[in-house]
Nucleic acid binder design. Structure first.
Lengths: 191, 191
DNA sequence: GTCTATAACGAGATAGAC
DNA sequence: GTCTATCTCGTTATAGAC
C-alpha cells in the first residue's frame, strides 16, 4: 500500500481513539517507522491531514450506505445495518471519527469544521430517506418529521458510542442502539 | 471568591468548550491575570485539576438532581427538568464536562477515568429511580428495564449535545431531547 | 499566595542533503 | 520520497525570591 494511505490508516485510528488534539506527527511516524519530515511530505500540515482523514472517512461511510441500499431489504433491516456500522467501530475500541472531532470542534480549523457538519448532514439525509421509504411502505410508524427522527438517530448512536467507550462494553452500545431504533422507528402494527 | 474556585470556573469552561487536551495552564492564567506558577500552587498538576473539575461538576449535578426531587412533580416533569439541565449547558455553547472527557477518555489519567464513569453511573441510577417511580405510578410505560432505559437517555442526551454543538443550534438539541424522552418514556395512555 | 525565571520536553514545521 | 538536523514555540512543572 502507498505511504499516504498507511499514514491515513494510522492517523485515523489515533484520532478515533485519542482525538485530534491527542496525537502527534511523532506518534504516526514512529508507528510507521518513518520520520516526521516524511509525513510532512505527504501532508504538509496537521490541518491538511485532518481534512484528508474526514474526506476519506466520509467517502467510506457513503460507500457503506450505498452497499446497504443495494443489498435491498426493508427499512427496518437497513436501520439495523446502519447501527451495525457503529457497533463495528466500537468493537475496534474506537469512537466515530466525526463524533470525536465534533467534541473538539471549537479547536479545529474551518475546513475541518465544514467537513464534520457535512458528514452529519449526509448521514441524516440518508436516514431520512430510509425512514420515509419505510413509512411509505407501511413498515414504520414515524412520529414527527423524518428529518427530526434522523437527527435523533444520529445523535443517539453517537452518544451511545461516546458513553459506551469508557465502559469498554459493546453489549451496552448494542442494547442502547436496539432500544433507540425500536422506540424511534417503531415497526407499524401489522394490522 | 477564592482563587481556587475562580481557577475551577475558568478551567471548567475551557474543558467543556475545547477539551482537556485543548487548553493549557497558560490559558487559565492569562484569563485570570495571574501567573502559571500561581495555578500550580492551587493545583499541583493538570491531572489534579482535572480530578477537582470532575468532582465539583458531579457534586453540582447531584445537587441539581436533588433539587428536582425536592421540587416534586411526576416522573414526566422530572425527566423534562433533567433534559433542561443539558439544554442550559448547550446554551452556554458548552459540552457536558463528562461527555467531553468521555471522548478523551483514553488519554486521561486513571483517577479521572474512574470519576467519569462514576458520573454516568450516578446519572443512570437517578434516572432509573425516576423511571421506576413513573412506572409504578402508572404515568410512564417502560419497555425494558429501567436501567437500560436510563442508559439510553444519558447516551441520547450526551449525543444530542455532541452533535448539536457544531450546528450551534439549541433548538436542534431540544427537538432531539423531546423526541427522545417522548419515545423512550412514553406517557401511559390515561385509560 | 503569588511572582519571575527557567528547566525539560514535545509539538508542528522547514531546510537541504541524498 | 525519505532522511537528519534544526528552528520556534508552547507545554507542564519546579526553584526560589518576595
Amino acid at each position: 500500500m502507498d505511504t499516504a494511505s498507511q499514514i491515513l490508516d494510522v492517523a485515523e485510528r489515533l484520532v478515533q481513539v485519542r482525538g485530534f488534539n491527542g496525537f502527534s506527527y511523532a506518534d504516526v511516524a514512529s508507528e510507521l517507522g518513518i520520520s516526521k519530515a516524511g509525513l510532512h511530505y505527504h501532508f504538509a500540515s496537521k490541518a491538511e491531514l485532518g481534512e484528508a482523514l474526514i474526506a476519506r472517512y466520509a467517502a467510506r461511510f457513503a460507500e457503506a450506505l450505498n452497499a446497504i441500499d443495494e443489498r435491498g431489504g426493508d427499512a427496518t433491516a437497513k436501520l439495523d445495518s446502519y447501527a451495525r456500522i457503529y457497533a463495528e467501530v466500537l468493537r475496534d475500541r474506537r469512537m466515530c471519527l466525526c463524533g470525536m472531532l465534533a467534541a473538539e470542534y471549537d479547536t479545529l480549523p474551518e475546513p475541518m469544521r465544514k467537513a464534520i457538519v457535512g458528514f452529519f448532514d449526509d448521514n441524516e439525509r440518508w436516514l431520512a430517506g430510509v425512514l420515509v421509504e419505510g413509512s411509505d411502505a407501511g413498515a414504520l410508524e414515524l412520529d414527527g418529521s423524518a428529518k427530526d427522527e434522523a437527527q435523533t438517530i444520529v445523535s443517539g448512536l453517537e452518544g451511545a458510542l461516546l458513553v459506551a467507550r469508557p465502559y469498554g462494553d459493546v453489549a451496552r452500545f448494542e442494547a442502547t442502539a436496539t432500544r433507540l431504533l425500536r422506540s424511534l422507528a417503531r415497526t407499524a402494527p401489522s394490522a
